[in-house]
Each structure stands twice: as C-alpha cells, then as structure tokens.
Simulated scan of single mutants.
Amino acid sequence: MNSLERSKVYEQVVGKVSRRFETYGYSKVRTPAFEAYDLYSGIDSSIPRREMIKVIDPTGDVLVLRPDVTIPITKELSHVYGRLTSERRYYYIQEVFRQTGTDLSPIEHTQAGIEFFGCRSPEADAETIALAVRTLKDLQFEEIKIEIGYPALLDSMIQQMNMDKRQNMQLRQLILSKNLAELQGLLREAKIDRQLAAAVETITQVYGRPDLVAAEMASLGVNSFMDGIVEYILEVCRLLEIYDCKEEIILDFSLLNNMDYYSGLIFQGYVEGLGRPVVMGGRYDKLSEAFAADLPAIGFAIEIEPIVESIASTMTAVPDSRSICIFYSDAELEEAIVLAEQFREQHYRVVTSPLQNQEKNDSYAYTVLLQQEGNVILTNEESHRYLTVAEVGMFFEREA
C-alpha cells in the first residue's frame, strides 16, 4: 500500500476515533504547537529534556514543539477554573514531537486522546477504560487486552526499603522485566525485610484475570493500604463487566508509571499484530497542583501510526458506501454536473468523468452511466436502468 492509500486509511481511523469519543460526550480541542520550555521542564513527567525539540523565539525565549498534550490542557483548565464544580471532557487528535532513539527515528507522532476532568471514582475509571476498548473495537481489532495496574502500591513498598538511587533504579527495571531470579538476589543484597521482599516478589509475578489476581493479593496481607487498592481495582473491573469488557481486562500490579504525573490507576492496551502498547493511560489527579489548582482527572492516548500501519497491511480495498462515479457522454455533460451537485448536497462523495474513461473501478460503491439510450446505475450486487435523471436522483434519495 502506497503513501496515498495509507493516507486514506489514516483519515478513516481518525474519523472512527473521533466519532467514538464524541459518543461519550467529549468535545474536540487543540493545543498550541509551540509551548514555553519551562512548562515541561518544571513538571514531573517522563519526557527527557533531550527528547524535546527546542527553538528560540524572536524575544530569545526557549520554546518546545509540543511533546505532550495532557500537560497544556491541564494548565489551561487550571488557569480558567482552579477547582471544578462539574465534569469536563475533552479529546484531541494532533501531533506530538519527540526526538527518541536513533537520528532516523521519526520525531512526529499522531496521538488521539481524551481527558476526563472533575471526577475521581471507580465509575469514571471504568468508563474511560471502556471507551478505550470500544475505540479499538471500532477499528476492527478482535484481540484486545487492557492491562490495569496501580503503581502507588509498589511505590509505597519501595519507599519502605530505603534503597540507594542505583538499587532503586535496578529494582524498578527488574520488576518491569519480571526478572524474579535477579530481583530476589537484589532484595537479599539490600537486606530487605523478609515479608516485604516476599510481597514484592509475588506482586511482580501476579498477572491475569481480576478474580485470580485478587485472591493472590489477598494472601499477602501486607497492609490496609494494599487492601484498599485491591478493592478499588476490583470495583473498576466489576463495572467493566457491565460495559461488556470482561474478556479484555488483565490485572498486573507490577506495572509502573510510564508518565511521572500519573498518581493512581494506570492502564495500557494491546492489539493483535503489534508487540507494544497502542493505548497508554491513567489517573493524574495531582498534575493540576503544579498550576495551583485541584482538578482530578483521568485520560489516555492512542498511538495512531502503528494502528494505521497494522490496518493498512491487512486490509483489502473497500469502497466508501456513499461514493459515486458519474460517467457521461458529451450530450449529458450538463446533466452530469447538475446530478453530481444534487448528490453532493446529500453528502455523497462524487466524481464525474467522460464516458470513454469508463473502466471497472472498485473505489466507488456506485457507478452512474449517463447515456442517450438510458441512465444506468451499477452497484456491486446489481444493475438498475432509469429513463430520466430525476429517477436516478430518487434512487439515491432512497439509499440515503
């Protein structure tokens, strides 16, 4: 599939994502392409400063090309409201820019995401995760897995260990990779309390269905803080069953923050054919505190490019169901123009072309032949013959 055809897939994906977000009450917003460097350098996030694309404006101030969307939306809402008395739902589809990996890595990536402000509850978390699942289903993915975690649980345990910076970083890497053998060695080396070490080892290996994971977690009996988190997550999972998302949900309490501003539940989504997450999300109730506000929030972002590549590599060309090509003889040029304009007002996608150019064209759902011996409509299933242009118009009014 060439780049032009891939662009069509991109627009289809973006259209489906937008429509799904809007069914959940989200309104589209845009953030500036350039923001002050201080906005990102002064916020805890996982965006390394070396990855930001920096420029100098005419006044000498340092700007960055948008590396994130959640932070500027939160800043704007914080300055407007300070504290919300009602919910606010926004979505975006726009580019973020980061210089990652090798010099050949693309710096521009399209993200589609939602930000749900003003509600801190299992209901809000379940609805947000359900929206992520629905969106991926709209894109025709059949194998969808959403991993849910709660990093604050492991963070609280790690803080109790009083490890040095090197050990702390190594511990987190071993947890993320689920490397139990080296993890046990590190915990012994650091002389961590046996019960605490056993709990971390177990949490690192617990992964699967909510009921089974909850049973494993209950057996640890570490503290009431852990019990409260498990109860919260199980309530989110119970609500997700009502959304008919039970089969897509996996619990993994070894998940750690991929963005430092996440402060509660986090999740990531996988689909068939792609070995890395295409959805990343979580709760970031404390991010607004950096702007002197109190705005509890949860959101997620979908990486559009890998989804487009996956769909483009497997899809077969399917004509737009509201597309028409009108072929006309010289005598019917005027009628072709009038008819095309009529269909366009009904929101059909229409092109016109001389009759001698007629060929089988799978990119249109309907082909109209305007010729002296009668007007013919061809579809994939059947052919219709009409005597007048008015009757052709009536056909498409019925189809609409």
Rank of each mutant, 00 (worst) to 15 (best):
Y10H: 03
V14R: 12
K16P: 00
S18L: 03
S18G: 09
R19I: 08
Y26D: 08
P32I: 01
A33C: 03
Y37W: 11
V55H: 02
P58Q: 08
L63F: 12
V64A: 03
R66F: 03
I73Y: 01
L84N: 10
E87K: 10
R89N: 04
Y92W: 07
Y92A: 06
E95R: 09
F97V: 08
F97L: 05
G101L: 05
T110Q: 07
A112Y: 02
I114M: 06
I114T: 11
F117K: 07
F117L: 12
C119Y: 14
S121I: 11
E123V: 11
D125N: 06
T128H: 05
A130K: 04
E143C: 00
I146A: 04
I146F: 07
R188A: 14
D193W: 01
A198Q: 13
V200D: 02
E201L: 06
I203Q: 11
E231G: 13
L234N: 15
L239D: 09
E248A: 11
L251F: 11
D252H: 05
S254Q: 06
N258P: 00
F267G: 04
V271K: 06
V271P: 12
V279S: 11
V279G: 10
M280L: 11
Y284Q: 13
S288V: 09
E289P: 01
A290R: 15
I298C: 06
E303C: 00
I304V: 12
S310Y: 08
S310I: 04
I311T: 08
T314L: 12
M315D: 12
A317D: 12
P319W: 01
R322A: 05
I324L: 12
C325T: 14
L339F: 14
A340K: 07
R344I: 02
N357I: 05
E359D: 15
Q371V: 06
L378W: 05
L378R: 14
L378M: 12
G393N: 11
R398E: 14
A400Y: 13
